[in-house]
């Protein structure tokens, strides 16, 4: 493989500096600050803080409800990722097979990603409202079947659906691009050898799509830990009785609303650690099975 080099390192440094400044200002600096706060009790209006060592972490990790929040975040991440990746893959395969009207469909599919999470939340809040939205009709046929306002499991299912719906579009673009970069000749050769559509999908398209699949998986899981905030905030506010109180929402609640900066900072560090660990696991174990062409 050929690589391009800069002959003059100064120019190279100059080129990357703006990007580095942005990364340091908006990522490393706040992260280091959060790291410091996590080990102290910080007074919101300034005026000093007390070093408390691991007290904040101890308090959080010995709290059953915090662990339930971690568990809920994992359920949300896996649930919405599985749904979003699965749906996107099916839709991309349809488009790739150029079924009737696929061009309009292709453009329509991209739109949901452009919608902000709170807007998605509001729309789905209406759709899933037991008393006013579309689900009201279901409730009229089967009374009391659907009530995410009181039923935590249903509330979780509802936010997973909304989260997945938003993510489908993003995944779709990558899958479609992946599918279209598979050489036609391979598929045609398969067809001439007598392989039917499903067989070609299983043996040619999906294996060749593995790198895309892996990329999408990592992005989706990472994203669902952090980007779920807007949906939770508009749809359930973490309720009913903490059933959708994901880690990121709890951080917002404690830190931004409750002014418990230290507790929220410690939770952020844990969340960061969890996302890093999950990404590591994915690269370590799943990426091995991926063959890049």
């Amino acid at each position: 493989m050929r690589r391009a080099y800069f002959k003059n390192n100064w120019i190279a440094a100059l080129m990357v500096t703006p990007q580095l400044i942005v990364v340091f200002t908006f990522f490393y600096f706040p992260a280091s600050q959060a790291m410091y706060w996590a080990f102290t009790l910080e007074q919101p209006w300034g005026g000093g803080n007390t070093w408390v060592g691991l007290d904040n972490f101890r308090a959080i990790l010995s709290d059953d409800l915090y662990w339930s929040s971690v568990w809920l975040s994992i359920v949300f991440a896996l649930g919405s990722t599985a749904l979003a990746v699965g749906m996107a893959l099916i839709l991309a395969i349809f488009v790739d097979r150029q079924l009737a009207g696929y061009k309009a469909y292709k453009i329509g599919m991209i739109w949901p990603y452009a919608i902000a999470a709170p807007a998605v939340g509001l729309a789905f809040r209406f759709i899933f409202s037991p008393g006013a939205g579309i689900m009201m009709f279901v409730n009229q046929v089967f009374p009391d079947l659907w009530n995410p306002v009181e039923n935590g499991t249903q509330a979780m299912a509802m936010v997973i659906l909304a989260g997945a719906w938003k993510q489908v579009a993003y995944n779709f673009i990558f899958f479609l691009a992946g599918l279209q970069s598979i050489p036609r000749s391979l598929i045609e050769a398969g067809a001439m050898d007598g392989a039917r559509t499903l067989r070609r999908m299983r043996d040619i398209q999906l294996p060749l799509l593995a790198p895309t699949f892996f990329f999408v998986l990592v992005i989706n899981i990472t994203d669902s830990f952090t980007d779920s905030f807007g949906i939770i905030d508009t749809m359930t506010a973490g309720g009913p009785s903490r059933a959708t109180n994901l880690m990121v929402y709890k951080i917002f609640n404690d830190g931004f609303q409750g002014l418990d900066y230290s507790g929220a900072a410690a939770q952020s560090i844990i969340l960061m650690g969890l996302v890093i660990a999950l990404t590591f696991v994915q690269f370590r174990y799943i990426e091995r099975k991926v063959h890049y062409t």
């Binding site: 973490g238 309720g239 009785s241 109180n245 609640n253 609303q257 409750g258 002014l259 418990d260």
Partner: peptide, 14 residues
């Protein structure tokens, strides 16, 4: 921590 006290109340009441 009044916001959180109120949030604890709400979660438990729910």
């Amino acid at each position: 921590s009044m916001i959180q006290l109120r949030a604890e109340w709400l979660s438990e009441v729910q």
